[in-house]
């Protein structure tokens, strides 16, 4: 139960943050990516504002255990692989085209109209296809 309540709290903070920061407005996201147009630096402030509490939180994990028990995530793997790069490029292309990434797509689902629902459906479809595409990419990368 505690786990579920903490998840709800985390999700509420996340959704509230995405809403007040303006990140569910696609013009603000595309504005950040659009260096040749009317550039909008807001996203950098959002990222910076989010990284500060998270940085403190990571410091706080040292020598401690999560509140509900278990262990903290393992230190990040240092290896870069083709999946990380290819996946990020594909994600970035979609992000640039529509100005939506997964968090804001969920947060805006009630006020993003039919387009928001279609985006969500396509995104979930993409997520379902990802294991298949990933295996193909593995084969491709082994061949080159």
């Amino acid at each position: 139960m505690q786990r579920i309540l903490l998840s709800l709290l985390a999700g509420s903070l996340f959704g509230g943050g995405l809403f007040v920061s303006g990140m569910t407005d696609t013009t603000k996201v595309q504005g950040w990516l659009d260096v040749f147009g009317d550039w909008d630096p807001t996203l950098a402030f959002v990222m910076g504002g989010a990284i500060i509490p998270m940085f403190i939180a990571w410091r706080f994990t040292e020598g401690r255990k999560p509140l509900v028990g278990g262990d903290f995530p393992k230190p990040p793997a240092p290896e870069l692989d083709h999946r990380l790069i290819t996946g990020s490029v594909l994600f970035g292309m979609g992000w640039g085209l529509a100005g939506l990434c997964p968090g804001p797509a969920v947060a805006s689902i009630t006020y993003n109209g039919m387009g928001g629902l279609v985006f969500m459906a396509a995104m979930l479809g993409g997520m379902a296809l990802a294991p298949l595409v990933g295996t193909r990419l593995d084969r491709l990368s082994a061949a080159v």
Partner: peptide, 8 residues
């Protein structure tokens, strides 16, 4: 865009 974001 949705497909690319989901897969990527």
């Amino acid at each position: 865009a949705g497909l690319l974001v989901g897969v990527g």
